[in-house]
Design a protein around this nucleic acid. Structure first.
Lengths: 331, 331
DNA sequence: CTGAAAGCGCTTACAG
DNA sequence: CTGAAAGCGCTTACAG
C-alpha cells in the first residue's frame, strides 16, 4: 500500500540508489543499458519521487505562492481580473514546472499565516496581487529573503520588482477621448486611493483636465459595482449638469450605468461613460462600454516571468505595459 | 543565512531535540519551566519547522489541491462562480490549517501533471471542480488512493462524494414561474450536456413543460455569455413567437439579453428571461435579471468540509443544497 | 560510469 | 517528564 521508494526501484533494477536517482533526474552520465533497466523498473513500479524527501535535500520546493490581498468581503476575488490573472500566471508557472499555491490574505490572521508559510520555506518565490498601501505584507515577506514580485506597482515604496499597465497613459487616453467628443463636465469615479492604480488613474484624469482648464469632479469607490453606482448617484448630486464620467474600472462603470438608468439619464446622449480594464462584461452592457484595455493576461504572464527570472538569479527589472482605448457605444 | 533548525533551538535552550519537537507540536507532556525555556529559544531564533522534513516523517503535507477542469480558453475560470468557490473553499481549508494549491487541468498535458502531482503525495486530499463527463481525471485520481470530493456532481458515475445544489428543483422553479406569468412558448438555453448541472436543469425544464403539455424549444450553449447570445439568436430563428427563455446560467442569460436587444425584442414585454446562479452581475443587467439562486459559497464550504471529514476518516456522504427563485424585472 | 556513505531536518517509539 | 537513536526517502560529494 505504501508507495514504492528509490530503494525498491534500485533493488528491482539491480543497481544502486545513486544510479536510480541519476536516471530519474535525467543526468547524462548513466550508461544506456543501465538507464533502460532502471526505466523499466520505474515504470513497472509506477515510481514517483517523494517531493518532501527531495525538497529536504535540494532545499527547493518547486512551488510558488500567489498571494491575493483579498478583504473578507471578497472585493478582489469577485473581480473578473482575479481569475484572468490567476489563470494566466498559473499557466506560466506550471509550464516552468512550478506548482502554484494560491493564498488569500485579507485579515491580520491570514497575513500572519501567509508570512509563516513563506518563512517556513514552503515556496521558492512569491507573486503578490492587489496590494493596498497600508498592507504590511510586502515588507514582511521581503524580510524572509524569498524572491518576490508584485502584480501591480505597490502603493508604498518597497523594494520588490513589479509589473503594471500604463495607468497614467490609459487614463489620459480615456479623458482625452471624452474631451474630443465635446464633453465639458467630465466626472471621475476613482478607485481606493491606497492603491497605486487608483492613484495613477486619478492623477492622470486631473492632469489632463487641468491642461484644458477644466475642473475635476471626483467621487471615490472601491472597484466594486455597487460602489460605482453609489459614487454615480453622488456625482449627479454634486453636479447635475455633468455630461461624462470616467470610472477607474469597468465594474464601477457598470454600477454607474445602472445608477444613470435609475436617474433617468440616457447613455451616451445625456452622459458618456468610459471604464477601464475591458473585462468581457463590458461588451454586454447596454450600451456596450467604451473602456481602456489593460492587458491583464499579459501583465500576469510578465509578472510570472519576472519571478521565474529572479529564481534563476537573472537580473530583472519592473515592467510597464501599454494600454489601448476601445471605443464602443457608451461614449 | 540558513534558517535555524530544531537542533539550534535545542542547543540554545540546553535540552534535547525531542523536547523541542514536543513543545513545538504542543504536546502536553513537557514541564512548564522547560517549555518556557524552549519557547524563548524558539522566539529568539525565530524558528519555524521545515515542512519538508516534517512531511517526510509524518507522511502528511497539510495541503490539499483544488483542481479546476478549465479548458485553455478559460471557460470556467472566467465564470464568477470560479472566484466565489475558490475563495470560500480556501477560507474553509485554511481555517483547518490546510494549505490550498490551485491547479488548472484543461489539457491532456496538465491532467497528466496534476495526476503525477497528486500521486507523488504532494497533497493530502483533492477537491475537484466543474468536471465534464468525458474527463478521465476523477477516475485517475481516485486510483491514487488520495481522498477526493467533487464540487458539483460528476457527470459520469465515479465513486467520489460530491456537493451540489438542487439543479432539478431550481430549474423547475424557474419554468413554473414563467408558466405562472402566463408565458406560453418557453425556450431554454442549456449548458453543455456532458455536465451534470446542465443535464439536470434541462431535464427539469423538459419535465415541467411536459406536465403542462407544452413543447420544449432548446439551444445548447457552453455557459459563456457569447454562447448565450448565439443560442438566443438560434432560438429566435427556430421560433420567432417565443415569449420566454430560461438560460441554464446567468452568463448565458446576459448574452441572451444582448441578443434580444439586437433583435429588437423588449424584455420582459416581448420575451421574459430567467437565469440561474444569481451572480452579482444579475443585479446590474437591464432589466435586472430574474434568476435561481444557487448557494455557491455554501456549496464550496460544504465541499471543503466533506473533504476535511474524509481526511479525518469520518464517514461522509454527498450533499444537495436547496435553491431559491429571485424574481426581478426580466420576467 | 557506478556505488557506499553521509546528511537534509524533522518525529517517534523506546528507555529510563 | 526527558533524551539517545533510528528512520522518513531522497541527493550528492567522494572514491574507484
Amino acid at each position: 500500500m505504501r508507495r514504492p521508494t528509490l530503494e525498491a526501484v534500485a533493488t528491482r533494477a539491480g543497481v544502486s540508489k545513486s544510479t536510480v536517482s541519476r536516471v530519474v533526474n535525467g543526468e547524462a552520465t548513466v550508461g544506456p543499458d543501465i538507464r533502460a533497466l532502471v526505466m523499466r523498473a520505474v515504470n513497472e513500479l509506477d515510481y514517483m519521487p517523494n517531493p518532501a524527501a527531495r525538497s529536504l535535500v535540494t532545499q527547493r520546493t518547486d512551488s510558488i505562492a500567489v498571494i491575493v490581498s483579498d478583504p473578507p468581503a471578497g472585493l478582489v476575488s469577485d473581480d473578473p481580473m482575479f481569475s484572468t490573472v490567476v489563470r494566466a500566471a498559473s499557466r506560466e508557472f506550471e509550464a516552468a514546472g512550478k506548482q502554484v499555491a494560491l493564498m488569500l490574505a485579507g485579515t491580520a490572521d491570514s497575513r500572519l499565516r501567509v508570512r509563516q508559510f513563506v518563512a517556513a520555506g514552503h515556496v521558492d518565490g512569491v507573486m503578490l496581487m492587489s496590494m493596498h498601501g497600508a498592507d504590511p505584507l510586502p515588507a514582511a515577506l521581503a524580510a524572509t529573503g524569498v524572491p518576490i514580485v508584485s502584480h501591480g506597482r505597490p502603493a508604498v515604496s518597497v523594494d520588490v520588482p513589479w509589473v503594471d499597465n500604463d495607468n497614467i497613459g490609459g487614463a489620459a487616453l480615456a479623458v482625452r477621448h471624452l474631451l474630443d467628443r465635446g464633453r465639458r463636465r467630465i466626472a471621475m469615479i476613482s478607485g481606493p486611493l491606497d492603491m497605486s492604480a487608483a492613484q495613477d488613474r486619478l492623477g492622470a484624469y486631473r492632469a489632463t483636465l487641468r491642461e484644458t482648464g477644466r475642473r475635476s469632479i471626483v467621487a471615490i469607490g472601491d472597484f466594486t459595482r455597487i460602489s460605482g453606482a453609489e459614487a454615480m448617484f453622488q456625482l449627479l448630486d454634486d453636479d447635475p449638469a455633468l455630461d461624462a464620467v470616467f470610472a477607474a474600472n469597468d465594474l464601477m462603470a457598470i454600477g454607474a450605468l445602472r445608477a444613470l438608468r435609475r436617474a433617468g439619464r440616457r447613455v451616451p446622449d445625456d452622459v458618456a461613460v468610459v471604464g477601464y480594464d475591458d473585462i468581457e462584461a463590458a461588451l454586454y452592457t447596454d450600451p456596450p462600454l467604451t473602456t481602456v484595455r489593460s492587458p491583464m493576461g499579459d501583465q500576469a504572464v510578465a509578472s510570472a516571468r519576472l519571478l521565474l527570472g529572479l529564481l534563476e538569479n537573472r537580473p530583472m527589472s519592473s515592467v510597464v505595459l501599454p494600454t489601448e482605448l476601445i471605443v464602443r457605444d457608451s461614449s
